[in-house]
């Protein structure tokens, strides 16, 4: 690990000012479960580490306001899993948060951090995309909201600009009933990085939102508005055709050592069906 200076602002203003001055040489520390690995491996050698955990405005946790559930930058995966609001409205996010790393990792890793890393394999991304999340970013130009689907560029890269950081993630409380489930493939049952990660949400209107990751440079969100996927009586071939069009954007890397492209693509289809079934079951349970 290289030497760096540790900065611990207590207000957003302070952080914004610091990042405006040192944005390119600074890295943001929330849970640190990815950052410390990069530091240890000397993949990055920042001059400053800016710890956001002491910023009062970011300690708001999970809050419901005006039909939006906001999750502040300090909320860990463990907190998310235990949160009644999240459990009530976003069970697929609970599924995903529950499989991020081990207990020890979940006690530190934050949802916002998971998103900001922009790993294609991030398990929280597919459910957040399915639930229509928005990212609230703050910088010297002020606050802006970015739909999560516009946030990711490619592995490790987001649309965040220099000096900008994410204060929270906001999720609209579903206005129509929805059943959603997150599933994944790993090399073992114990904690592992996903070789395919996928979330499917079925709305009572018949719209299906499906998102998947780890099979391309960034997570993908696709919609089926035909009602076919949501229709349990629809013929298999019709469903398969829709899945095929949904999965057309998958382009798994040949270089990955976690799984071959052929296997990932096949598993994408297996998981798609599995998540759809689970999502439908959850939707029906609500009814």
């Amino acid at each position: 690990m290289s030497d760096f200076e540790y900065v611990r602002p207590t207000t957003i203003d302070e952080a914004v000012r610091f990042l405006a001055a040192h944005g390119t040489e600074a890295r943001i520390l929330a849970g640190g479960t990815d950052l410390l690995i990069q530091l240890r491996n000397n993949d990055i050698q920042p001059s400053f580490i800016l710890d956001v955990k002491h910023i009062r405005e970011l300690q708001t946790g999970v809050q419901l306001k005006d039909g939006l559930v906001s999750i502040s930058a300090t909320v860990t995966m463990s907190e998310l899993v235990m949160d009644p609001l999240i459990n009530r409205y976003f069970p697929a996010l609970v599924d995903a948060a529950n499989v991020v790393g081990s207990v020890q990792i979940r006690n530190r890793a934050t949802l916002v951090g998971n998103i900001c890393n922009a790993s294609p394999a991030a398990d929280s991304a597919p459910p957040l995309l399915v639930y229509g999340a928005e990212v609230v970013a703050i910088g010297s130009q002020g606050k802006r909201r970015i739909p999560l689907n516009d946030f990711f560029v490619r592995s490790g890269v987001t649309v965040l600009q220099r000096g900008e950081f994410v204060a929270s993630i906001e999720l609209p409380v579903p206005t129509t009933r929805m059943g959603a489930a997150h599933v994944r493939r790993t090399r073992r049952r114990g904690h592992d990085l996903a070789s395919v990660t996928l979330c499917c949400g079925v709305q009572e209107t018949g719209v299906v939102r499906l998102s998947y990751g780890s099979v391309g440079p960034r997570p993908v969100l696709a919609l089926d508005t035909s009602g076919i996927l949501a229709d349990e009586k629809a013929p298999e071939e019709a469903k398969t055709a829709i899945f095929e069009s949904i999965f057309a954007q998958a382009s798994p890397s040949k270089k990955s050592m976690r799984a071959s492209p052929a296997y990932r693509l096949a598993m994408l289809r297996v998981l798609g069906k599995q998540a759809l079934e689970l999502a439908l079951a959850r939707l029906n349970d609500q009814g």
Binding site: R187, R188, R189, G190, H191, D192, L193, M257, R258
Partner: peptide
């Protein structure tokens, strides 16, 4: 060796 270390060289855990 591409999978040096515990992240990509997997051994059993209690769940396996």
């Amino acid at each position: 060796i591409r999978n040096l270390g515990a992240a990509d060289y997997r051994i059993l855990t209690t769940m396996d």
